[in-house]
């Protein structure tokens, strides 16, 4: 059964998106992306060093991997827009994760500035993925403005705390007619699986993979967990209840006799 995620007319089969920061080397990062069969990788434009003796991160992305530039470092909408335009001019494509952060302690995004950047970049034909604190109203406005997906955080970036915002994310999944991609805070494959089970379209993971003792195997395990969670979601997970449901019911004798 084909089950690909379609964004801006493109099909993505692997719903694990991988962030490329924090790895001990680009070669380890490359192997992690390859072994996990990642199809989307986010790259901070601030780290792209196209013209120096130092290695260029873009050369280490597998050919099958689509680049999603992120606007890391942007403190307001204007800076995010400028980074987006620079990325496009540098030939890094038009998929852009908008990340506007004015809080360097918790790295929580500024939803308002992010929304402004979405409005501008959509008009400039970018495929826009806003990273945001889960908020239904702002999410709806981002959708109305033309975002291609919404990326609410599970918990603060790099915190490995899991899906602390689950209730809010579930509401967004139910109410917004766009792919909801949980980004940030996932520390374990089981948490990625949980996101997929509740209907997230994809998840984005970086820290938990990059700083593990074996990033390559961790990337593979996240990939498998995402597949498992997605499959479970598609299979229709039975509702959990507090009362036992006996497989040999006590009232079975009341069934009509044929």
């Amino acid at each position: 059964m084909e089950d690909s995620l379609e964004i801006a007319g493109e099909k993505v089969n692997n719903r694990l998106f991988i962030g490329t920061g924090k790895f001990a080397s680009y070669s380890i990062m490359k192997r992690a992306l390859e072994e996990a069969k990642a199809e989307v990788a986010t790259v901070a434009l601030r780290r792209v060093d196209a013209d120096s003796k130092a290695e260029n991160i873009l050369n280490y992305l597998p050919k099958s991997c689509r680049v999603m530039i992120n606007t890391s470092g942007a403190r307001d909408a204007d800076e995010a827009v400028r980074i987006g335009r620079l990325a496009k001019a540098a030939g890094a494509g038009n998929w852009i994760k908008i990340e506007v952060i004015r809080d360097n302690k918790y790295l929580l995004p500024d939803n308002l500035e992010t929304l402004k950047a979405v409005e501008i970049l959509v008009k400039e034909d970018f495929v826009v993925f806003p990273y945001m604190s889960p908020d239904l109203s702002i999410g709806r406005r981002m959708a109305e403005a033309g975002a291609s997906a919404i990326m609410p955080l599970g918990s603060p970036i790099g915190s490995n705390r899991g899906v602390k915002t689950r209730e809010l994310i579930e509401i967004m999944i139910n109410e917004i007619n766009l792919p909801i991609i949980v980004d940030a805070g996932l520390g374990k494959p089981s948490e990625a699986c949980e996101c997929m089970e509740i209907g997230s379209a994809a998840v984005l993971v970086n820290t938990a993979i990059a700083v593990s003792d074996d990033p390559v195997r961790m990337a593979v395990s996240f990939s498998k967990a995402v597949c498992a969670g997605r499959l479970a979601y598609l299979s229709g997970i039975p509702a959990a209840g507090k009362i036992a449901s006996a497989s040999s019911p006590l009232t079975g004798f009341l069934r009509d006799k044929k």
Partner: peptide, 16 residues
């Protein structure tokens, strides 16, 4: 740094 398992980061900002 590479020997110790760290990635040396040469560039972490951009010319606006």
């Amino acid at each position: 740094l590479e020997c110790k398992g760290y990635q040396p980061v040469f560039k972490d900002w951009l010319n606006f």
